[in-house]
Structure formats: structure tokens, C-alpha cells
Design a protein around this nucleic acid. Structure first.
Lengths: 356, 356
DNA sequence: AGCTTACAATAAAACGTTTCACCAGAATTT
DNA sequence: AAATTCTGGTGAAACGTTTTATTGTAAGCT
């Protein structure tokens, strides 16, 4: 009747009539245990519903089998997907994951990183809030760190990111090829390396089309206002290309609010594909980032580091895919009839670009 | 030069010239320690960059300050948002969270729940995969469990969910009031309690309009096919109401694929609002579930349970909001001119319905 | 039979922390 | 001045494991 506490290895040992060490040996699959004893132990484990205490186990064995994951925002579908994939992969390798979100806040990220140390993870995968990540990493951090997606200002980190320049360039070249005379490129801030690389990719790719950059900041009401003002001014640019997730949402909403129709009034393309972009009509042309692959590579790299592989920091850039859809019709002069969904896939290159 | 290991409380004690117990006392804010000693300890802590080992701390103190969270799918924005809010709240109460996703798989959920026990959490918040959750909870589970969102078949659980019936009824009444003659209601499966409650809410709310239910299953290619077949048949229903997240995505895509336009060909409404529904034109009429509030209530309840509050299981139903947008125009016979974004909010009732 | 090897099981130490019981000295009371 | 209480600090035990060293026993060899 009295709520007996959660069963410990000691209780299992007593019940099975063996020593604590034997139970541990059975549970950890040590070969030096007779079938008879193993059976008795397993039986006791089942009867008591015993499961190991990870804290105690890790404390003694000094094998962590635990990795930390820090992302800027779980509600961003891309990061959610990243985490979900990581979780799956880690499980396959028998690792546990501690996941925290920085809620788009650099200070909170710093705090989370500090707190992370208390878990004594064997390694860390971080998508940093911004480029200044290095300053927030607790000094004397002991475990290997693999960065993903966002590019840090400081060198010296393992990094798995995407091929921003060429991917953005492909979109720009596509728009250029469609005959648009000018393109408004919108991004949160060029101080974010990802955005800067994309903008540079655009400039490098266009030959004829005129491009113009507009930075609207993060949560910068002023910037949003500037965007709206630009979109109300005439003449409109022929096309609009937004370079990051938040900007895309804001831009798309603003266009709808002031009654601009895509693609009749202007063409629209986005870096960072979202689910709805293939649902709406017309579909939105977008750069699809290889989130799953990014998670796979990040995990594989971290696993190598955790199991002792030293060596210079690795940077790997993954190839994005470009989905051409109805928001940037093949020829803006032709009829804008019903656009078929799905669009065609345009592969950038056969092999991912990897500067190392 | 030799990579000294990560600092322990022992090293801090040595450095500060005090005992281990004193360091612990300082770190845990015990009042019985002189300012001088406290200063020395804090200095040593800072110099060494010491942070406590949570595993060891929890092991000894037997205070967990740790809660587990199990959700069916992190890539579902609603659940991601749920987790993100929980994480924030837990932090305010100085709790850590271990978050795992079941990846929409009941077996994986069972596995995750088993594994969860190893963490020795003080409590658990679970959004179950399906109604059969009770069977998957490891028997003799020790810690309090609060369920959220999905309603279990078995009674006896604390539960925070939404007011499915009235919310779905409000949509149905709205459609009815617009003069649509018939409405096709689509959901994954009536064996899911949420979906069943919504369907029953629809039936209870309509007076004139004819309603018809179509179950398309989860990952049921056959079901998707039946949906497409129905949407190709004439006459079309005047309106379509989809009852859950997956179904909404599938339905919306199917409509676009076969060239049906909303709301010209048929009106469309959805349970489970998503971000893009207010971005697209026309906006999608949808039931918005109070995710943040659900997380708040779940956390508050779990916290009470974890700190020893006994008592009968509590069920609380939270009020949803209904966002009427352009996909279900006020009068389908009037001109379907430019629809203003945002829509109006229709509050169901002033006070949340709470059967307890 | 004696001697070594191999095997199966165990007792005890260790992991890093918190807590408990205790102690020396100072401060207060008698 | 002796007796008591308070104060700030400490050694050691304990938490639930894994691991190491050790034991006892059976088997294999001359």
C-alpha cells in the first residue's frame, strides 16, 4: 500500500538473489554472466519495472552519451525539422539529446549555453542566434561544438551550412532570364552572414537585371514601414526576392495587405521554403534548404568529434535546391493561366560544394 | 598543458581553501556562511569556470527539478509552439525540461515514455499520439502526468484540452448562416476523440445545412484518393471544413491540384490555424487553438502536482477563437471582391468552459 | 595429486554532489 | 567564572550506478 519508491538496482539484486554488480553486468550485456543468472535478473527487472537511473549511470561510468542542441527558435519550422531529425539520428546511435531554444535572444542563448554545461554533454550542436556566437560560448568549454546553418564571425568552429551564394544566385539568374528589368531584394540585415552571402550571390549572378537591396531589420517597425512605403511607390519593381524566413513572412503579408497580387503585379521568390509555398496558388518560387541533410552532417561530424577525432575545424557547405513555381512565371508576358502546382526542380550542381 | 578535466566542487574547495561542504553551502545560498568565505568561494568558482554537475546534484539531493515533455511531432507548428512556451515557463520556475518527439508513431511514443523514466523526472507533460495512451504508460509510473490536447480513451488523467465541440460548431453555424446548402466535413479518423468531438459539434450546431463526414485516415493513400474522387464529382458541396492539421494540408493541396478555387468553387474552413492562413489571399477561416494558454495551464497543473498537490484528476477545456476570413465569405452570392486580411474575431463565450 | 588457468560472481571503491551530525570557538546567560 | 547557547565551518555518509580487484570454484594440465 505504501508507495514504495522507484526501484533501484539494489532492489533488483535482492529480488533476484544476486549481487548488485551482477545485475549491472546483465543490464550492460557483459558476456561473463551465466544464462541462469541472467534469466533471474531479467525476471526481477521485469517484475519491478526497473529502469536504470541515467544520472547515476553517467556519473559513475563517465560516459555521457548525451549531446546538447541549442537552436534560436523552435517555432521556426526549419529549426523544428532540424531538431526532429537530430533526435532521430541521435537515438540510432544511442545518444540522448537535451534540446533548448534561445527564443531568438542572444542573451538567452548565452544563458542556455552556460546552463548546458551542467548537463555535462559529450558534445553540442548549435544554431547560433547571430555571428557573435564565439563570445557567448562559456570560456574553457570542454566538449566539441558543431555549428549549423548560421555562420559565425570568428573562425575555428566546425560548421555545417548551406551554399547561400550559389543558391540565391540561381534564383536571381532565373528572374533575370525571365526578363524582369529590376528586382527588389529584401533581407533582415546584411550584418547576418547568411543574408550577406545571399545578397552577394544575387549580385554575382545577375547580368542584365537591376537589383536593389532593402534591409528591414529584425523586429524593426521602421524597416517594415520602409518596405511598405517602397511597395506603394510606383513604378513597382518587376520582381521581389526575400532573403530570410522572417522577411519572407513580413513581405508576403505586406503585399497581400496593400492589395498587390503575385505574380500579376510583381513576381515573388523566397529563400527558405515553407510548407505552404507549395500549397498556395500560385506556388511560391523558393530556395529549399537541405535541413535533413544538414542535421545528418552535423550529427555525423559531432559524433566523430565526440568519439575522439581531432583535427582542424571542418566547414561544409550543402547544396540547396531551387523550386520554381508559379510566383515567378516562365514568361511574365504570356498568359498567367492556372499554374500547375509542384513546379520543377532545378538542381544547382551535381556535387555539393565543399571548400575543405 | 595537460587538459585538466572539467572542474569539480573538490577543486573549487581546494582553490578557495575551504571544505567541499562550504562550497556547496555557498552555491546553494545557505545562509550560514560568512561573507568572507562566500567571497573566496565565488572567486574560485569564477576562476575555474565551475558549474555544478546536475546529474550528481540530483542524485544526491533527490530533488529533480526536471520535467519531461513528450509530443507527437515537433514539426507540427502547434506542438512546436507548445514546447517553446513550456520551455519558457519551466525556466521561470527553475525547472529543466527534457523534450522528446514520438514522430507520430505510437510505438516510438511507448519507447520514449519508457526511456523517460531513466531521467527520473518529477513530472511529465504528454500530448499523446492517440487515445490508447494509457496502455503505453509504463505501469507503476511514479511521477505525475498531465495530458494535453489529445483526449485519452481511459479516464483518470489530468487533462488540458480545447473546447472542440463548440468551436467546430461555431464554424458550422457560420457556414450555415452564410447560406451554404451542404458542407463536406473531412477528418482523419473519428476514432480520434478530438476529431469525433469536432464532428459532433458540427452536427449539433447546424440547423438547415446538410453535412456529410469523410474520413481519410492517417497516411491512408486510399483515403486521399477518396477525397480527390469526391472533389471531382459534381455537384460540389458548397463548403468544406477540415477537422485536423494533416487533413487540412492534404485537402488544401488537393483542391489546388485539381484546380478548385476558394471561395469561388467552394468555401473552405479549417480547425487548427496555421501561420499561412492569414497570409494567403483569400485568408482561410479557421479555429485558432489557444496553444500558449494550453501550455500555461498544463505547466501550472503539473507544477502543482509535482509539489505534492493530490486530488482527483482535473479536466479543463479551453476556449478556442474563430477567425473568419475570406475563404468563407459572408455571402457567397455577393461579389467576391478583394477580401480584407485579418478577418474578425468571433469569441465563443466569455468564460472558458470547465466541466470540473 | 598437485598446480595452473579460466570462469562466475561479488565486495568495495569511486563518480560529484548534498546533507547530516558534529565540533571548536565565540557570545551570551547564569 | 562556569554553564549554556549560538555561529560558522567541517568530515563523512549517502544517493544509484559502474568498475576494479578479489574470491571461490571448476576445469585443464603435467
Amino acid at each position: 500500500m505504501s508507495r514504495s519508491r522507484t526501484p533501484s538496482i539494489k532492489m533488483v539484486a535482492d529480488r533476484a538473489g544476486v549481487s548488485v554488480a551482477t545485475v549491472s553486468n546483465v543490464l550492460n550485456g557483459k558476456p561473463t554472466v551465466s544464462p541462469d543468472f541472467a534469466r533471474r535478473v531479467n525476471e526481477a527487472v521485469r517484475e519491478l519495472g526497473y529502469v536504470v537511473d541515467l544520472g547515476a549511470s553517467r556519473l559513475r561510468s563517465r560516459k555521457a552519451h548525451l549531446a546538447g542542441v541549442v537552436v534560436p527558435d523552435l517555432t521556426n519550422p526549419m529549426f523544428a525539422s532540424f531538431v526532429s531529425t537530430l533526435e532521430h539520428l541521435a537515438r540510432l546511435d544511442d545518444y540522448d539529446l537535451v534540446v533548448v531554444s534561445a527564443r531568438n535572444n542572444a542573451e538567452e542563448e548565452a544563458d542556455r549555453l552556460r546552463k548546458m554545461r551542467s548537463w555535462r554533454p559529450a558534445g553540442l550542436i548549435v544554431i547560433p542566434c547571430d555571428g557573435a556566437f564565439a563570445e557567448r560560448l562559456p570560456n574553457g568549454f570542454f566538449a566539441p561544438v558543431v555549428l549549423a546553418d548560421r555562420i559565425p564571425d570568428a573562425a575555428g568552429f566546425d560548421l555545417i551550412a548551406v551554399d547561400n551564394g550559389p543558391a540565391a544566385g540561381a534564383i536571381a539568374a532565373h528572374l533575370d532570364g525571365q526578363g524582369y528589368g529590376d528586382c527588389l531584394v529584401v533581407g533582415s540585415s546584411l550584418s547576418i552572414t547568411n543574408v550577406r552571402e545571399r545578397w552577394e550571390g544575387v549580385r554575382a549572378a545577375v547580368s542584365r537585371m537591376h537589383v536593389e537591396m532593402l534591409e528591414i531589420g529584425i523586429d524593426d517597425a521602421n524597416g517594415a514601414q520602409r518596405l511598405e512605403e517602397r511597395l506603394r511607390r510606383r513604378p513597382l519593381p518587376g520582381a521581389l526576392f526575400s532573403l530570410d524566413h522572417g522577411t519572407t513572412l513580413l513581405t508576403y503579408r505586406t503585399m497581400a495587405e496593400i492589395g498587390l497580387s503575385v505574380p500579376d503585379d510583381l513576381a515573388f521568390a523566397s529563400f527558405d521554403e515553407m510548407e505552404w509555398m507549395r500549397l498556395v496558388a500560385p506556388g511560391i518560387t523558393a530556395v529549399r534548404q537541405p535541413v535533413e541533410e544538414m542535421a545528418e552532417q552535423a550529427w555525423a561530424l559531432l559524433l566523430r568529434r565526440m568519439t575522439g577525432s581531432a583535427g582542424k575545424p571542418v566547414t561544409r557547405r550543402l547544396r540547396c535546391a531551387v523550386e520554381i513555381r508559379g510566383s515567378t512565371p516562365r514568361s511574365p508576358l504570356e498568359e498567367a493561366g492556372p499554374v500547375k502546382l509542384g513546379g520543377e526542380k532545378w538542381k544547382l550542381q551535381d556535387e555539393p560544394y565543399s571548400p575543405e
